[in-house]
Design a protein around this nucleic acid. Sequence first.
DNA 1: CCGAAAATGCAAACAGTGTTCGCGTTGCAA
DNA 2: TTGCAACGCGAACACTGTTTGCATTTTCGG
Lengths: 230, 230
Amino acid sequence: MEGRRATLRAHLLSDIRAAALDELRRTGAASLSLREVARAAGISPSGLYRYVDGRDGLLELLISDGFEAFGKAIAAAVAEAGDDVIARMEAVAIGYRRWALENSEQFGLILGTPVPGFHARADGPTEASVRRFAEPMIRVVADAYATSHPAGAGDETIGGFNLSTFDPRANELPELLLSAVVRSWSRVHGLVALEAFGHLAWSGTDVEALLRTEVRSMVVEFTRPAGTAT
Amino acid sequence: MEGRRATLRAHLLSDIRAAALDELRRTGAASLSLREVARAAGISPSGLYRYVDGRDGLLELLISDGFEAFGKAIAAAVAEAGDDVIARMEAVAIGYRRWALENSEQFGLILGTPVPGFHARADGPTEASVRRFAEPMIRVVADAYATSHPAGAGDETIGGFNLSTFDPRANELPELLLSAVVRSWSRVHGLVALEAFGHLAWSGTDVEALLRTEVRSMVVEFTRPAGTAT
DNA sequence: CCGAAAATGCAAACAGTGTTCGCGTTGCAA
DNA sequence: TTGCAACGCGAACACTGTTTGCATTTTCGG
């Protein structure tokens, strides 16, 4: 049984989270005002320090929550897709884009220009959220690899990789798979980041269509069985 | 002949540019202090307003200069490369990466999370700098297309595009070429942005090697002669 | 050449910010 | 019940961007 104080604290802290997210959405991360958040949460500026370690603490909260929400959105998009490899990768790409556009301030905060003073501590909650964020993307790419590299048939670095025992929390991914993950992520992220930050407006491109093209191109390239290097 | 006043003004303005760039490099765009810039330029904060329209004006200056420098760096890298298509595209990609890493604060300012208050006016100097920035990339991709689509042999949207009369200031690029430009740019930018903003540190990837792989993949894909859809 | 006009630089002020400190008050646990 | 840690807050401090009024200096037309 929790004391009355603990529940009050939890409630107020969630109010603070909500107020901060609201303020972030409204004004952006760079001009997020601690005092304004305090006002919206019905608390004095100095009182906020009992709950959050200053402005950087507020940002850490928002970054952690952002990765969490982003990851969940992508996972949900993947879950809705079928078993087809292309469909799943498309779901990741388009889910990535949708979330980034609909939550552009959060997106900019977590994956855009880093905020000057802030660096996530290795043991903080951000680290865990990032892991959960990366997991669905890694899994989808790994699946694509698994289909083109059936058990025991691929080269060693991939052949030794057993998807059923795949643990996304283990830092060591097979080198080729890691490259595939980074390349896939970067290709989706490149288009989405440019669009979300307004750098493709001049072109009038249909970014979603381009994204589908990219996904097909990636699947073709990554599921090519043997060595592709020239 | 310019009056003494004009030259003094020009000198001081260039001092302000230098001081602002210095401050940007040191502390990042989000916490760039107008007063600190004024101090470094040996001028009072209010005096700065005779030269620059507040903090946003300072940022516009830095953004414009940033695109200018970025474009020149890429153009120089291309100029050093030979005539080979792959070599030229590699030069763009690696020049892009080098500049972004060596000038990460400027890079974040011009292509990262947009600063809240600021939006470049369509007629401002930023617009012109962006055009000069995009020009070398467009030209290289267009060259790649030209080699695989010799004059009069390609499909209409490309066939009607004459490289010799190519004007990068004209907004209308052939649709397929536009797609190729956006896709190429986004693939380079995705990797570089993620690296420059510290989101690939966990992976320990050799981003430059990945970039070369991407370039080869792009050239192979984009110089495929006929319809590539499906 | 000289006086009006324009450009320049600055100190002071204002509203806003993040952060710290010391004070009463309140909830909980020994 | 008593002691103590947690809490919430007002006041203060050092900043920030921006505006305003006022001298000073340069320029230029009559």
